[in-house]
């Protein structure tokens, strides 16, 4: 990995993006509607209010979830 990129795993798929990488930038890259998704990094919930200041680290496991039907 070069110094200018960061490799992470998003919803179980590898993603490599330019570093430094904030959560807000990842969500923009993923074309997510910010108001309809929630995020966890390495199994810890990250509230929406902290996305702009949360810098992703190499190897981070990111979960991005959205609403769906359920039982």
């Amino acid at each position: 990995m070069s110094d200018s990129t960061v490799s992470i795993v998003v919803n179980n798929a590898p993603v490599r993006l330019k570093a430094p990488l904030r959560l807000t930038e990842l969500l923009k890259h993923m074309a997510c509607d910010d108001q309809s998704v929630a995020v966890a990094v390495n199994l810890d919930f990250v509230p929406r209010s902290r996305w702009a200041n949360h810098f992703l680290q190499p190897g981070d496991q990111v979960e991005i979830v959205a609403p769906m039907q359920g039982g």
């Binding site: 919803n11 993923m30 609403p67 039982g71």
Partner: peptide
């Protein structure tokens, strides 16, 4: 009414058809 969460994939419309009806 019970609901759930699913993984969001890149470029996928967050507003899935079921959720857009449910909400």
């Amino acid at each position: 009414v019970t609901v759930s969460l699913r993984r969001q994939t890149a470029g996928q419309n967050t507003d899935s058809s079921y959720w857009s009806w449910l909400k």
